[in-house]
Design a protein around this nucleic acid. Structure first.
Lengths: 352, 352
DNA sequence: TTGAAAGCGCTAACAT
DNA sequence: ATGTTAGCGCTTTCAA
């Protein structure tokens, strides 16, 4: 590994000149000098030592990325987009952490962020208390949160990038209603996240607006382990059994996310119910996997690449200019129609 | 952020004493001194600056992790296991990169590994030339490769951790044969990886051993984009159409991985063929998603947590002791039976 | 048992 | 236009 000194020697200049070209201050030198330095850099295949740069400047071209579990296909998708734009567009690397939604693990990650000199972090579905977060922000962390709107009232210390969850739920409900469904349910897992709360709110509001308040219910399953990839589907499977057993069961179900919908589909199959003949189902997320399900899952798709861009743009932008105030960025989803929704089954008529 | 100096001052000792307690050399000091230092560290919530440590020692408690795409559920799963053990068991953080199987991107990642002072890397399904890799290893990188056996003949500069891919394919074939299948196919995507080659070899060998060499074929679909999450399923879907159109089509199919199997299932459905009544299907990977498919996918499951442990243990072990020679570690898979395999359809008899 | 001090590779203020 | 230099926070040798 060659150092800035090696380059300086090779080019016959001082280290500050090399440093200047490294940092784009090329106006401060002759063309010939610049050329010599660039040649030496190439010849030695020189790469600046980030640790030294960071020790000096306090900056590290790296972002923290916190997800509940990267094994969850939705978080994997978001993470891929984030890493790709952080790298290709801004030259930043990504330090990844799985939190399993544990506060202790999150705290540990933040500590390490500081000790590695990483000053920007993207948090996917955080559960962090506002006070802990505020503390990190006070210590100079630039944080951007996904999938969780700003806490109303609290001073926004963070950026918030999120889909319009209430609108997403509404789209699902309206789609079901347009196909003739009157008995609706929203299937979710216990353990409130902001986004789940918003979806429930949107679901209920849309049902009410259609005059269906009395026949729209929220069904919640409890999760053993707490973080949510296969567990989320397990909950769906369990919930489906419960729903199937109910003689007055809903005919149209909105799932809190695609994984839940996958579990629901499997559970209905176990119970001998057919989707969409007996129950219709709408997911949320728009995973590529939803197209592979049998039947293909109708789902509300989130604009993941757009949101990932915004997330990265905001952390990096605010790291560069601390004067920028945190903001809130809400994206609109869209409905992808496939084969998991049909008209509700006709009630069986007894012959007189 | 407090420094080692702050701690030294607070405890009334020199920085070297603090450094000694930081590095476990507690025998070199009095009990009272140790206690004072520990108290000061706690009081100041002190965290050593990794950049400074690294500048001094050349070590960084961080691992590189290279995957083709973290949006692929299999790589997401492996990555989660790796990050978790690296962190919880060894206190190392993970720097993540998506390669999209591009050599340029891989090279860029390696450069950044060096400039960040990261000396250990885990490569999932790398396509790297041996020579490029060797160069990095010569420069001091400790590399561990997953899913690719050592190149025979070449001096092993890397560790290799992999499942016994040939055995995996054999298990799938034998399962199909045991259910009465005689016309077999192996469905894969174009673009050779080591693991795909091994699987093909195992498939062919098993078919031959059963005297089925003439009726066992490898079917290969080409990928547009090159890296493989939804693309892999797309190839499967396309391949299914091709297979369905063949009047002498195979009755039992082994898919190169679960994603391919998912695509195949969807494609057969498109074509009006039923799994397993018309075609039987065995996947490979053992994703949790395979249990959610309709029908549930029979698949050869890889021992991911075990392999992840070994991967991490090897990089970190060899970083600590460069004397350890690279080795090869092969894990055995097992078959998970679900509902995608049945007896082959009876040939239609015409009435005389 | 403890401390002083050099130096890892870099940046940037200051000097020339 | 270019060079000199202090110092970022830490480890470690050597001296006391």
């Amino acid at each position: 590994m060659s150092t800035i000194q090696d380059v300086a020697r090779q080019a016959g200049v001082s280290t500050s000149t090399v440093s200047n070209v490294l940092n784009g201050r090329t106006d401060r030198m002759g063309r010939a000098t610049l050329a010599r330095v660039e040649k030496a850099i190439l010849a030695l295949n020189y790469r600046p030592n980030r640790a030294a740069q960071q020790l000096k400047t306090g900056n590290n071209p790296m972002l923290g990325l916190l997800v509940p579990s990267i094994a969850n296909p939705m978080y994997g998708y978001i993470a891929r987009e984030i890493e790709t734009v952080a790298q290709q567009k801004y030259g930043h690397r990504v330090m990844l952490g799985n939190t399993y939604r544990s506060k202790e693990i999150e705290t540990g990650f933040f500590d390490d962020l500081f000790s590695h000199g990483v000053r920007g972090v993207i948090m996917i579905s955080s559960q962090l208390d506002e006070q802990h977060l505020d503390l990190c922000v006070q210590r100079g962390l630039v944080a951007v949160s996904y999938d969780r709107p700003a806490t109303p009232g609290a001073s926004p210390a963070l950026d918030h990038v999120t889909v319009d969850n209430a609108a997403a739920a509404r789209m699902a409900v309206e789609h079901l209603i347009s196909r003739g469904h009157r008995r609706l349910a929203f299937a979710t897992a216990a353990g409130q996240t902001m986004s789940r709360r918003e979806k429930v709110r949107g679901f209920l509001a849309a049902a009410q607006a259609a005059g269906l308040a009395d026949s729209a219910h929220v069904i919640e399953g409890s999760m053993q382990a707490g973080y949510g990839d296969s567990e989320m589907a397990d909950v769906g499977r369990m919930l489906a059994a419960r729903i199937a057993a109910d003689p007055r069961r809903p005919t149209g179900i909105v799932a809190v996310n695609d994984l839940m919908a996958f579990g629901l589909m499997a559970g209905f199959r176990d119970a001998g119910l057919s989707v969409p003949a007996d129950v219709s189902l709408v997911g949320m997320d728009g995973l590529f996997l939803s197209a592979l399900m049998n039947p293909g899952l109708t789902t509300v798709r989130l604009p993941v690449p757009l949101m990932a861009c915004k997330l990265v743009e905001r952390v990096i932008g605010r790291m560069a200019d601390p004067g920028i105030k945190p903001g809130e960025f809400i994206f609109q989803p869209d409905l992808v129609e496939r084969d998991s929704v049909a008209a509700p089954p006709q009630p069986v008529r007894r012959l007189a």
